[in-house]
Nucleic acid binder design. Structure first.
Length: 465
RNA sequence: GACCCCAUCGUCUAGCCAGGUCCAGGACGUCACCCUUUCAAGGUGAAGACACGGGUUCAAAUCCCGUUGGGGUCACCA
């Protein structure tokens, strides 16, 4: 049987990092198996679902490069089908109407809690005759769950997990207003969509027992489960917005490349020996459920950054010029034609030094700024003292260079330094400050070559005295 | 509180299922050195872990039990 996986987010917020990993694992597993990866939007909570959130999720998946098969399924559109399933259960005597009031439920729950019982609903309408129904009360429909025995799920990650059925009470299938609950909707949808393998967060593990009961009542074969451990914040506690529980678009805005995020997320909870840098093609070939770890992991921005630096260095220069443009714009630098040409020429030296596109933009901006260049504090101090005189002297040597490329330029500056008995750094650092406005940059001979003769000489002259 | 899950360097992890080849390997981070016109990148090296306690065994990071710690779930939310 062909594998079918799905990602089923509820559109109540952005695609956060944990959801992104869940989607990635589902996508990888489907691609690995040559199966299908489906997308279902669980928008049955009308009050909390928004179109913005839905768009954010779709955008996030697209940015990560996770494409789904077929049309997006909207759970809200299937309410009638869900209700029909509940009705079928009712007809077969596998579900029943419950007229308990909210107050009764609260009281029951409190009593069960204080008595240390797990079953919160006591099943008071389970075997009651319908004729006893109070007038004017719309009932909910509950599943008639088994009272004894145990429910076992064979989880691909967690192994065999079992729970006694007396821990599970009769869950609500249909609300008083006739709308289906999550538990019913998920089971019916997964079944109808032909899902064979559910891969989702560990927080759903206990739901699986109830869902298994539902599958059984409906007479359907249960899909396989794989509950992946959750991602925690750096402090081991739940992810908060301060450290990682952001939407994937936040990572995009922080200057991370999608392949870096993908690679990082992949290695969080999954491994293939000592492999660290894994291409998506390789991941599809290697990915399997049995290599998913069982323990939760912590989100580590430093490792993501390191990986991002790797992928930036590996990226095509032209792509980076495109990608860095919005970040330059955020710095108030417009990437015009001259700028782009310089960036492309200088990208090899630039990308070595950046861990994010923001850093790349910051270090690339000098190529695009017009004179006079803004100077950092450190650059300003490099231009103090005897620096103007040195620059003035160097300028003469530079003007004589015919072939304006890195090697002859280096030769000229070295010759100038040697003639004046100066260490190379004595000349190079002021040059760097004058050319880039900074004390840190790509090699200055490369910078001069990229900037071109006129611009380079002008920038140096600005500070020569 | 009840139920369920988890437990190797600071972090991600390999090893565990099929005990010996592990005084535990890799990566990130940290530190040092090298390279060097700066900053990176790169290279070399260092510090750094089997949560604890019992058992089983000739032998345990690996199997079993307990403890402790962490996490998850307990809605007419999803």
């Amino acid at each position: 049987m062909s594998v079918v996986t799905r990602f089923a987010p509820s559109p109540t917020g952005f695609l956060h990092i944990g959801g992104a990993r869940t989607a990635l694992f589902n996508w990888l597993y489907a691609r690995h198996c040559g199966g299908r990866f489906l997308l279902r939007i669980e928008d049955t909570d009308r009050a909390r679902s928004t179109d913005e959130a839905k768009a954010a999720i779709l955008d996030g998946l697209a940015w990560l490069g996770l494409d789904w098969d077929g049309d997006v399924v909207y759970q809200s559109e299937r309410a009638a089908i869900h209700a029909a399933a509940a009705q079928a259960l009712l007809d077969k005597g596998l579900a029943y109407r419950c007229y308990a009031s909210p107050d009764e439920l609260t009281a029951m729950r409190e009593e069960a809690r204080s008595a240390g019982r797990a079953r919160l609903y006591d099943g008071r309408w389970r075997d009651r005759d319908p004729s006893e129904a109070p007038a004017g009360v719309d009932p909910v429909i509950r599943l008639k769950a088994p009272l004894e025995g145990e429910t076992v799920i064979a989880d691909a990650v967690q192994g065999e997990v079992r729970v006694a059925n007396d821990q599970l009470d009769d869950m609500v299938l249909l609300r008083a207003d006739g709308s289906p609950t999550y538990m019913l909707s998920v089971v019916v949808d997964d079944h109808d969509m032909g899902v064979t393998q559910i891969i989702r967060g560990d927080d759903h593990l206990t739901n699986s027992f109830r869902q298994t009961l539902l599958y059984r009542a409906l007479g359907w074969e249960s899909p396989k489960f794989a509950h992946i451990p959750l991602i925690h914040g750096p402090d081991g506690a739940k992810m908060s917005k301060r450290h990682g529980a952001l939407g994937v678009e936040a990572y995009r805005d922080m200057g991370f490349l999608p392949e870096a995020v993908r690679n990082y997320l992949l290695r969080l909870g999954w491994s293939h020996g000592d492999e660290e840098v894994i291409s998506t093609e390789q991941a599809i070939e290697w990915f399997d459920l049995d290599a998913i770890g069982r323990s939760p992991s912590r989100f580590d921005m430093a490792k993501l950054s390191n990986l991002n630096g790797h992928y930036i260095r590996e990226a095509e220069d032209a792509r980076l010029v495109e990608a860095v443009a919005p970040f330059l714009a955020a710095l108030g630098v417009e990437a015009g034609a001259v700028c782009r040409a310089r960036l492309e020429a200088g990208m090899a030296g630039l990308k070595e030094r950046a861990k994010t596109l923001i850093e790349l933009a910051e270090s690339a901006a000098f190529y695009c700024r017009a004179r006079p260049l803004p100077l950092s504090d450190k650059a300003a101090s490099l231009l103090d003292g005897e620096a103007p005189a040195i620059l003035a002297g160097c300028l003469g040597h530079l003007e004589a260079v015919g072939d304006w490329s890195a090697e002859p330029l280096e030769a000229a500056v070295r010759a100038f330094a040697a003639a004046g008995d100066l260490k190379l750094g004595k000349v190079a650092q002021p040059l760097r400050a004058a050319l880039t406005g900074s004390n840190a940059s790509p090699g200055i001979f490369e910078v001069m070559a990229v900037l071109g003769r006129d611009e380079s000489l002008a920038r140096i002259a600005d500070h020569a005295g």
